[in-house]
């Protein structure tokens, strides 16, 4: 079991509804997933449609090429698998085995 998150008090909170930028990186939405995309490097044609479509920027791209999926943040929505061209079918959704 994960420990309960500490909620800041009025004194601890920065004044004026301010949040530090870039905090989404630390917020691991991967735990929300019940199905996961599995990427097949052999089938991938590097069309980048999955990268454009992913609402959580969870398609990992290095030097202009897709290299995998960021499971820390992927919520398992499946958009990438749907958008991957039918003839290619490089991404398939599989049940989380936990």
């Amino acid at each position: 079991m994960k420990a309960e998150e500490h909620k800041l008090t009025a004194k601890e909170l920065p004044v004026g509804d301010i949040l530090e930028a870039g905090t989404a990186v630390a917020f691991k939405t991967g735990a929300w997933r019940s199905i996961r995309p599995v990427w097949n490097a052999q089938k991938c044609i590097q069309c980048m449609i999955c990268w454009i479509s992913c609402p959580d920027t969870s398609i990992i791209v290095k030097d202009g090429k897709v290299t995998g999926i960021n499971y820390d943040h992927c919520k398992g929505c499946g958009i990438c698998a749907v958008e991957c061209p039918k003839k290619v079918c490089a991404i398939t959704m599989e049940a989380e085995k936990k």
């Binding site: 909620k7 008090t9 949040l19 530090e20």
Partner: peptide, 20 residues
């Protein structure tokens, strides 16, 4: 020092900001 301003606050934080 970039930051986010005016993000949504729900039941868990709105009251603290209004208390401020």
């Amino acid at each position: 020092r970039p930051y986010t301003l005016g993000a949504i606050d729900l039941q868990d934080y709105y009251f603290e900001h209004r208390f401020q």
